[in-house]
Nucleic acid binder design. Structure first.
Length: 581
RNA sequence: CGGGGCAUAGCGCAGCCUGGUAGCGCACCACACUGGGGGUGUGGGGGUCGUAGGUUCAAAUCCUGCUGUCCCGACCA
């Protein structure tokens, strides 16, 4: 039992100005966290209890899946990062520093290098595989823009796991098992979530899934089909246009004609000034490409249907396009193409032209004329325009047909709380992590890695579960299960006695009880408000009134009204209404 | 990394324009009242006005540098 009078109930009536999203506001107001500096937070007692609850669920499920818990240092020596090649590859988000001996170190944003180093020394036989190691550890990433409280903090708590294998099959098995484990974890935590196909980013590897908690404040867009299991991050989502072939039946005009479009530089301008639908236009964007002898300007033209947009993550995967995706400067464009952006089209361009699939079947379209203030109408591939190669680099839109042909695509916002990767041999090869196989032959281990943003889960849970009065925790991660509030304790000895014995009884029954015994200056209204703000899921009020009738007054945080429960019946009632599993 | 805003008590803010002994609300402490939804009154404690420099008889206030912090942007040709 915890006594509120002896506990830090750090609630705030006013909303701090620097908190933008509701979870951040409520975490500060409910006294769960305090900011130390940008992206750095102290967890206060009540907040830490929640964090530990999440940790416990994650640990339990990882153990159930046969993973072994370890704990690796937060501080890592540069040697390992140089060995993997990431010391130079990682940008400023890797926080580097030197020790007193002038040796380079960094704060671990992730632990592939450390675990690979450990395992190459500790494991030597295929018989020790597969093996899966995890830790729940503080990470540090010097984010370019930390925000939303612990949602995107620089220092945060993460569960990361790394598995080792001698075959792709074995990796796939563990990967599938982790996928299922993650689903179970997020289900137990009461989160509404979706696993989606993902881009593997700079961690490297092939197969990858993200787990997103659905929330309007999410920083990612996720795409999923109305009628099939297809789900993907928008960064890599594909879809089919509903009206892809809308013009393909038309008779091709033999020759395009130029028209003056002096004030029209955007698709919208051109479309409205010519009175032609945007989907009949071909949009040309010029981006940085790979420098070569064949392409001394280092620019590439990307063409896409006028009503569609380019997905830079997809585009930069094409060998012709430089990564990161960067638009060319106006001056560079004029220098290379002798034409301002706004009137460019895929006609006799001196730079490579990469076409999105959306334009391939277009007929009699409009595009820039490569002369300032002019566009072509009734242009066609072959006769008027050309492209060098085509690819899918379109950002999918809501309503597109699912790539498996079943259903239409919907887009929602999500908070990434989990990410699993098949790394392959990226790290084990660079760091020479090998074991002997059954033939006594040395083989490079195949790896997978699996992350969960533990502190981020706390915030995302609040995003999904709150009301005007504050947080509404699911029982399993609430800082306390039950708040016991004595009414007029300073006047009634009976209320004090019953509150104390009740709190004791509930504690013995295995519940975590917060007894709000704060002094008489703390009015009932304040106690109610604080307990609700903190999101404690079950409340029991002890009053003289109730004692007379031999009942306790129960209220669920998520319900509107009180219920009167016979005092003798309270344990049975709670056991039916509290889910700790 | 680019643009903008802000920095005065633990929190939220006013004062700055027009320089002259630092203020309000919440929170905190004491006492009294009140006592089922952030109650009332009286009295109190708490500030190198982010920092360094400059202007001035005099700077929270005007000027400059620095730091911190928040927001916006970083594909639409």
């Amino acid at each position: 039992m915890i006594r509120a009078s002896q506990y830090l109930i750090a609630t705030l009536k006013e909303t701090p100005t620097d908190a933008e999203v509701v979870s951040h506001q409520l975490m500060v107001r409910a006294g769960l966290i305090r900011k130390l500096a940008t992206g750095l937070y102290t967890w206060l007692p009540a907040g830490l209890r929640v964090l530990h609850k999440v940790t416990a669920v994650v640990r339990e499920e990882m153990n159930r899946a046969g993973a072994m818990e370890v704990s690796m240092p937060v501080v890592q020596s540069a040697d390992l990062w140089i060995e993997s090649g990431r010391w130079d590859k990682m940008g400023p988000e890797l926080l580097r520093f030197v020790d007193r001996h002038d040796r380079d170190f960094c704060l671990g944003p992730t632990h592939e290098e450390v675990i690979t180093d450990l395992i190459r020394n500790e494991l030597s036989s295929y018989r020790q595989l597969p093996a899966n190691f995890y830790q729940i550890q503080t990470k540090f990433r010097d984010e370019r823009r930390p925000r939303f409280g612990v949602m995107r903090a620089r220092e945060f708590l993460m569960k990361d796991a790394y598995s080792f294998h001698t075959s792709e099959d074995s990796l796939q098995q563990t990967y599938d098992q982790m996928h299922a484990t993650y689903c179970r974890i997020f289900e137990r935590l009461g989160l509404e979530f979706r696993p989606v196909l993902a881009d593997s980013g700079n961690i490297g590897g092939s197969m990858s899934h993200e787990f997103h908690v659905l929330a309007d404040s999410g920083e990612d867009e996720i795409v999923f089909s109305s009628d099939s299991p297809y789900a993907a991050n928008i960064e890599m989502a594909t879809g089919q246009l509903v009206d892809l072939d809308f013009s393909s039946g038309e008779t091709k005009k033999p020759k395009a004609s130029a028209v003056d479009t002096p004030e029209a530089h955007s698709i919208e301008d051109v479309s409205s000034s010519l009175g032609i639908e945007a989907r009949r236009l071909v949009k040309t964007m010029v981006v940085k490409g790979e420098l070569s002898e064949a392409n001394p300007s280092g620019l590439v033209a990307l063409v896409i249907r006028g009503d569609q947009s380019i997905n830079p993550i997809k585009a930069e995967k094409h060998p012709l396009v430089a990564s990161p995706f960067t638009l060319a400067q106006d001056e560079e464009i004029v220098a290379a193409l002798h034409c301002k952006p706004g009137s460019i089209g895929p006609i006799d361009l001196s730079i490579p032209v990469l076409a999105d699939e959306s334009v391939l079947s277009m007929v009699n379209f409009v595009c820039g004329a490569n002369k300032d203030g002019q566009h072509l109408i009734d242009a066609n591939w072959g006769s008027d325009c050309r492209y060098d190669s085509s690819t899918d680099m379109r950002k999918v839109q809501e309503g597109d047909i699912s790539p498996d042909g079943q259903g239409s695509l919907q887009i929602k916002r999500g908070i990434e709380v989990g990410h699993i990767f098949q790394l392959g041999t990226k790290y084990s090869e660079a760091m020479n992590a090998k074991v002997l196989d059954e033939n006594g032959k040395s083989v490079t281990m195949i790896m997978g890695c699996y992350g969960i943003g533990v502190s981020r889960i706390v915030a995302s849970c609040i995003e999904q579960s709150h009301d005007d009065n504050g947080i509404i925790w699911p029982d399993i991660i609430a800082p306390f299960h039950i708040a016991v509030i004595p009414m007029n304790a300073h006047k009634s000895e009976a209320v004090v006695e019953l509150s104390e014995s009740l709190a004791k009884q509930l504690t013995e029954a295995g519940y975590e009880v917060l007894l709000d015994d704060r002094d008489k200056k703390t009015s009932a209204g304040v106690k109610f408000a604080d307990m609700e703000l903190m999101g404690i899921p079950h409340r029991i009020v002890v009053s003289d009134r109730g004692i007379e009738q031999n009942v306790l007054e129960y209220k669920s945080r998520s319900a509107q009204d009180n219920e009167m429960i016979p005092t003798d019946d309270i344990l049975r009632f709670l056991s039916e209404n509290i889910r700790l599993g």
